[in-house]
Design a protein around this nucleic acid. Structure first.
Lengths: 186, 186
DNA sequence: AAGATCATGTAAATCGTTACATGATTGT
DNA sequence: ACAATCATGTAACGATTTACATGATCTT
């Protein structure tokens, strides 16, 4: 029934950073921070929280104020902290990735060149939008000088650098394809 | 029973490029071409091939020579070609990615800074190995001047650019963390 | 009063990976 | 003969996404 492995640690980690949180807030927080490299859905969060509680890695916090919404707020137990730390020191695994754009480009010779060019243009537009979002987040984060925000900045910087690289790659790929197109017409 | 969606098209596409192939060769081919952004296992390939055959998108090829190994060789049917083309012209979806290294770095403040630095150093080493492999493949591919190899080069170029960017990011992140380490010691 | 969003969950479908299983063929 | 690798598959498991379901609370 319960979910396991990676999702567990993501949720445990977020909970460690937020000190205490509900499943709902956990998700909202991930959306504005780890979304780019890690996301969870409610359908995984709630069962995982239940499971973590059963494992005594987290506990429900008694609400100090009574006029709070009916929601479950959790925090890590000392065992939860240890479990998280043990996971953090293990070398991360490279996770398999699938990139549909690249797959379609790889098969590009089967369809007209314009199809691939269009895919690339669309991708570039989306990347530019993402870039400006990330830049804004970076500006806000840069004001903060805690160690925690340094780690946020490092992961964000990964995103920005890769987006910039992707945009350059798109431009170059479009250029190459257009020149190939010219040659086949002649 | 059968596998579906993305895997189907990946296999259909590879089959289109190879003209005809066995499941085994399909896999070997992907290992030396699409591995970086798309891989399939035998456990998905064989059921998908069976399923594609049932859908009449591919057919078994009668072997011309008798001294061939006992293996099933498939090729696309006209319907298979159409199905593939229809998929290729649809805008690719951005697929969700999970990056465990980034997740662990994001939670970096929970463990000593050296832990994160070690993760980054290990990552950098792996990236350098990958880079030299990709460079070699690129050199070989560059000799060929077909349209098909242009598409291969474009996807490979994506890989190379992103690896270079990742290495730079690793270096920078390590630098930032070391400087933060100095400051916390003082 | 209505609509947005807060808040938590279940069930089913999908999907992919790992382990298991088997046997033929080729090269040394 | 033996090892490598060719070649095809099944079964079980693990994990995630989508759809479904419900109701409270806040805002206008």
């Amino acid at each position: 029934m319960a979910k396991s492995s990676k999702s567990q640690f993501a949720i445990l980690g977020m909970l460690a950073i937020l000190k205490k949180s509900s499943g709902y807030d956990l998700k909202k927080h991930m959306e504005s921070s780890t979304q780019y490299f890690w996301k969870e859905t409610f359908s995984s969060i709630y069962p995982v929280l239940e499971d973590l509680e059963k494992q005594k890695l987290i506990v429900k916090v008694k609400k100090p104020t009574q006029n709070d919404r009916k929601r479950n707020i959790y925090k890590l137990t000392p065992e939860g902290h240890n479990t998280l730390k043990n996971w953090l020191i293990q070398p991360p695994e490279d996770m398999q990735l699938r990139n549909e754009l690249l797959l379609k480009l790889f098969f590009g010779a089967i369809v007209p060149i314009e199809v691939s060019i269009e895919h690339l243009k669309k991708q570039k537009k989306e990347l530019k939008n993402k870039l400006s979002t990330y830049q804004k987040i970076k500006n806000k984060l840069s004001e903060n000088h805690s160690l925690e925000s340094l780690y946020s900045l490092i992961t964000l910087d990964h995103g920005i650098r890769h987006i910039l690289t992707s945009i350059e790659w798109c431009d170059n790929a479009i250029k190459e394809l257009k020149s190939a197109e010219q040659q086949t017409i002649k």
